[in-house]
């Protein structure tokens, strides 16, 4: 089926569709988490105003930048950890046992 494939078989259409779906799901989840976390940090929930003020807007922008940085940082740290434990995929963080 992949007689022109380089190394590994081409993904089938069903696999491509599943991959796009999965990607969208991850994006939506990350957006939800970003919104939840940065709302908590930047916007008081007494709602005396309906508009974001300048301070809140700037805080949200910085919060988003830091959130993306923490993502990167944590994934680096987890890779280091996995390697320092003697290689292998994510060992020690999984379900154990």
């Amino acid at each position: 089926m992949s007689f022109l494939g380089f190394g590994r078989p081409q993904p089938s259409s069903a696999e491509k569709i599943a991959a796009v779906e999965q990607e969208m799901k991850l994006m939506a989840e990350m957006h939800n988490r970003l919104t939840r976390v940065c709302a908590k940090k930047c916007v008081p929930n007494d709602y005396r105003e309906g508009d974001l003020n300048k301070g809140e807007s700037v805080c949200l922008d910085r919060c988003a930048a830091k959130f993306f940085d923490v993502h990167l940082k944590v994934s680096e740290l987890m890779q280091q950890e996995a390697q320092s434990r003697g290689g292998g995929g994510g060992g020690g963080f999984g379900m154990g046992g």
């Binding site: 994006m27 990350m30 709302a39 916007v43 105003e49 922008d61 930048a65």
Partner: peptide
């Protein structure tokens, strides 16, 4: 609702 939507919108742009 108004503020949350503005916030969601702003964070969508950053994202």
């Amino acid at each position: 609702v108004q503020k949350q939507m503005a916030q969601s919108q702003r964070l969508s742009e950053r994202f």
